[in-house]
Structure formats: structure tokens, C-alpha cells
């Protein structure tokens, strides 16, 4: 762990014991969570099939589609089963399932997934929409679009349109046109990835404070442009897989101070901590505390950040 990263995490987690728990768990691989793809198979049917080979549990009674394979597995074992080949389940870390839960998609809504690849959240959104309504799933890079397309195909998603454009350019074009405004938008923004250390230890080496500043600027622009495409009363969920406040609360603070938005409280099936209201001598809007911080040591998960906003007036 780079010294500055350690120092920042110690500031975020001032309780020594809490930090030690964090520092311990980030060196252990994540648990094996999967999400039943109800587009292709009912939950009970999948569960009965999987229970024949693995110890599978459903940790959250309100979300029976979320399953944990609670045993040691061979490398690649989850990805090499018949059920995975047929697209009956999607291998997805539990914290990555949270933004779509916060978004709460409904059939017949028009939803924009601004940074959609690799498609875990897009396919989860399509599943909750029962393949009705429309998702515009956007990404910039053609290689990432191919992965997104493959994953949506495998999940049997038929209500998505995949677009390739930079997020700002797409939102600018859409907002200036007569194209319908979106009911909901997910901005699962590119970030420094501090929360993914368990599955991607190379993040330890790649971590860089300059990147955090760069991402923070980009994320604010993404949110600003995305809000222009949202209808009045619409929902924007902003999420990252990082702990850096510059990429999280500071972005939400920016939205609160510059746009007619309200932060909503979110109920998620994991233990969350409220957003912080100050960092590095900067004070944030008090409502930022309704954002959710997800720490690995609280849930044996990856780290994440989720905030949900409602747009009070259309943005011109």
C-alpha cells in the first residue's frame, strides 16, 4: 500500500481497529457472488440446479436473485458451468449490484446507462425491467462495446440499444435534440478503483493521487451533462468503486450546489456508512451524508459508493 493511500484511508477510517480490519480484508480475494438472470430462468429453478453441485445461499430475503456460492471453488469453476454457459447467472460482486438496486428500474421506463461496459449493471437493469422499456447503454471504447454486447447477448437482453460516444458528447447531443428525456440515468463513473483491491490487487500499484483529481473533474462533467438529459422528477444514480471523497462526495456536492437536485436516502441490503461532509479542508453540502459508502470490512465485499438524486426542475 502506497504511503499516501494508507494515510488517506487512515483519515477515512480513524478508528485503528476499523482500519486494521480494512487493511486485512483487502488482501483476501472476494466472495463468489452470482446473480440469477431471471430473463432466462426462474430463481427457484436455478437454485435447485446449483444446489446439486455447490453450497449456494441467498443472503438477502428481499433480493432472492442474489446468490452466494459459499465454498472454495476451483479457478474458473463458476464460469465453466452449464448454467453459466446458458446465461442463467451472471458472476457479479455484491457491491456492484447496488447501483441498479438504488436505481430501482421499472418496466417501460427509459433509462440511460452512461458508462455501461462490461454490462453487469446494464443486464441487471434489463432484468428488473423484464426486457420492457428501453435502456440506452453507452460506452466509448469499441473493445469495451464488444464485451458489453457479448454480455447483454448472453443474458438475453432485448430492450437495450448500445451506443458508442463519449459520455459528454452523447448527453450534449441528446439534450439539444427532441429525443425523449430519461426517467432514470445511471452514471457508474470511471474512477480510481480503490474499492476493487480484493479482485484487482494491481490497483495498489496503479494508485496515483493525480488520477483522483483527473477523475473527479471528469465525473463532475459527466453528472452535469447527464442531468441535462433527465426529465423533471427523474432519478440519477451516481456510483464509483472507489473510496476517494474527491470522486464521491465532492461530485455529489457539486451537483447539489449547481443543479436543482435533491439527494435521496437509499435502502441497500448491505451495511453502509453515510457520506462524509468534509475532506482536506473542504466542506460539503450537508445532504451529502445521505450518500452511501460501502467498505469491504463491513460486508466482506468490495468497496463502493452510491448516491441517488432526484431532479427537481428540468435543466436547460
Amino acid at each position: 500500500m502506497k504511503p499516501l493511500f494508507k494515510q488517506r484511508m487512515e483519515t477515512l477510517l480513524p478508528d485503528k481497529e476499523d482500519f486494521e480490519k480494512y487493511n486485512k480484508i483487502i488482501h483476501i480475494g472476494p466472495e463468489s457472488f452470482i446473480r440469477c438472470n431471471t430473463i432466462k430462468i426462474p430463481i427457484e429453478k436455478l437454485l435447485s440446479k446449483l444446489k446439486k453441485k455447490w453450497n449456494v445461499v441467498q443472503p438477502f430475503s428481499n433480493y432472492p436473485e442474489i446468490m452466494l456460492v459459499n465454498q472454495n471453488l476451483e479457478p474458473g469453476e463458476l464460469g465453466n458451468s452449464l448454467e453459466h454457459t446458458l446465461g442463467y447467472y451472471y458472476i457479479q460482486e455484491i457491491s456492484s449490484m447496488l447501483p441498479p438496486l438504488a436505481l430501482d428500474p421499472k418496466p417501460n421506463e427509459l433509462i440511460l446507462d452512461l458508462c455501461a461496459s462490461p454490462g453487469s449493471k446494464t443486464s441487471q437493469i434489463a432484468m428488473y425491467m423484464q426486457n420492457q422499456g428501453t435502456i440506452i447503454a453507452n460506452d466509448l471504447n469499441i473493445g469495451r462495446i464488444k464485451i458489453l454486447s457479448t454480455n447483454l447477448e448472453k443474458c438475453g437482453v432485448t430492450n437495450a440499444i448500445i451506443t458508442r460516444k463519449d459520455a459528454i458528447g452523447l448527453c450534449a447531443s441528446l439534450s439539444k435534440s427532441t429525443f425523449p428525456k430519461f426517467d432514470k440515468i445511471l452514471v457508474d463513473a470511471p474512477c480510481s478503483g480503490e474499492g476493487t483491491l480484493r479482485s484487482s490487487p494491481k490497483t495498489f500499484l496503479m494508485w496515483n493521487p493525480k488520477l483522483i483529481k483527473k477523475f473527479s473533474r471528469q465525473q463532475k462533467t459527466f453528472v452535469a451533462f447527464a442531468l441535462k438529459c433527465l426529465k423533471k422528477g427523474g432519478t440519477l444514480v451516481y456510483s464509483t468503486c472507489t473510496h476517494a471523497p474527491e470522486e464521491n462526495e465532492e461530485v455529489v456536492d457539486f451537483a447539489l450546489k449547481n443543479f436543482p437536485v435533491k439527494i435521496e436516502k437509499i435502502s441497500l441490503p448491505l451495511k453502509t456508512r453515510q457520506g462524509i461532509t468534509s475532506w482536506n479542508n473542504k466542506s460539503y453540502h450537508n445532504d451529502v451524508k445521505h450518500s452511501c459508502r460501502i467498505y469491504p470490512q463491513d460486508n466482506n465485499s468490495e468497496g463502493f459508493f452510491v448516491a441517488k438524486m432526484t431532479l427537481l426542475e428540468e435543466v436547460k
Binding site: I145, S149, K165, L170, L174
Partner: peptide, 11 residues
Amino acid sequence: RLTNVEIIGAY
């Protein structure tokens, strides 16, 4: 007309 549409629906 507004953006590059790569894929519509499923094959």
C-alpha cells in the same frame, strides 16, 4: 442521427 448506434436489441 445523434450518436453511433452499435447494436439494437439481441441477435
